[in-house]
């Protein structure tokens, strides 16, 4: 899904009456490198409403891979991904102090959530669970990922390592997916083991969320507001029964990539009753603050190699 499609979807969401909003108090530009799916945009909108007490329509302004930004400065408020240089921002804007944290987590379907219960998901458990699910239903793949999304690939590489020379050994050729030395190998093995849906390599964030929502996958990576982790009541109704957990990584650890959106306003704009929301830290997960500049740099330099490795299996 390209950025223009996303923009269109956002506009449709913004201007169509529905459960997303009642009467709009204005619009807020959203400036980020993430190719947000409609469901995620809705979550951000809800979070913004929760923190400001006002309902805004979101106008998504994607940042191109080259890093260039086309601002729509007609919106007096803008949610801007942390790390975007201020030189790229329009003049006459200032931070409001309000932030929304988005974390990249592993979403588990309702059936799996019941199986998991409250136990902590380790990488081995995750692998075993996938294998068990596959075995139980050989017609479907338990895991689905939007691997066409560069940021998703970047996040996997961030969690499981990126392809580098000599990272794979002969041992790895027979090892299971979770035992692979880097993300591309891991994902390739998962596909090969029919645990990860092969369509993942062609799927974007939107398709992945659709597959998960349709119940055709038990696991999928998910961007959610960090507040959802601690307070399930904040989640939208369609996520009821879905559990979110930090991605398990080796060493029985979990990792939580986090991206922060800062609310900026034009200096002429006055906003009252800004609630300074503070998300509780996830004690058992290592938070990885995603940085716009470094992420963009990686995508520009390393994404292709890692994705190619995933496709051709050049491990």
């Amino acid at each position: 899904m390209n950025s223009m499609s996303l923009l269109l979807i956002c506009l449709i969401i913004a201007f169509c009456p529905g459960p997303l909003h009642g009467t709009s108090d204005g619009s807020v530009g959203l400036l980020s490198r993430i190719d947000f799916a409609p469901a995620l945009l809705e979550m951000i909108s809800r979070e913004l409403e929760r923190t400001t007490g006002r309902h805004f329509s979101l106008i998504f302004q994607p940042v191109e891979a080259s890093g260039s930004v086309t601002f729509n400065d007609s919106t007096p408020l803008m949610l801007i991904e942390k790390g975007i240089p201020e030189t790229m921002l329009p003049e006459g804007f200032e931070k409001t102090g309000l932030t929304i944290n988005l974390v990249w987590v592993l979403a588990a379907g309702r059936d799996v959530t019941q199986v998991l219960g409250s136990q902590t998901l380790t990488l081995e458990k995750f692998a075993a669970l996938l294998a068990e699910l596959r075995q139980n239903d050989p017609q479907r793949f338990p895991w689905f990922e939007p691997l066409l999304s560069k940021n998703t690939m970047r996040n996997f590489c961030l969690l499981y390592g990126e392809k580098a020379p000599k990272t794979s050994t002969k041992r790895h050729r027979t090892a299971m997916f979770h035992q692979q030395p880097h993300a591309a190998a891991m994902l390739y093995r998962a596909i090969e083991a029919e645990l990860l849906n092969p369509l993942s390599v062609e799927a974007d964030l939107g398709l992945a969320m659709e597959v998960f929502a349709a119940g055709d996958a038990d696991f999928v990576s998910y961007w959610i507001p960090q507040s959802y982790l601690a307070n399930a009541a904040l989640r939208p109704a369609y996520l009821a029964g879905v559990s979110f957990t930090p991605f398990p990584i080796s060493g029985n650890r979990t990792m939580l990539p986090r991206m922060t959106l800062n609310l900026w306003k034009s200096k002429e704009q006055k906003i009252d009753a800004i609630i300074s929301a503070t998300d509780p830290d996830q004690q058992d997960a290592a938070i990885v603050e995603l940085d716009f500049l470094s992420e963009t740099a990686w995508i520009n330099s390393s994404y292709t190699a890692n994705y190619d490795a995933l496709i051709v299996g050049d491990l």
Binding site: Q139, R140, F141, N197, P198, L199, E202, E210, V211, A214, G215, D216, A217
Partner: peptide, 14 residues
């Protein structure tokens, strides 16, 4: 074809 091939039957149904 994708949904059919990759076992996305619910999505296929939709």
């Amino acid at each position: 074809t994708n949904y059919s091939s990759y076992g996305l039957y619910n999505l296929l149904q939709k």
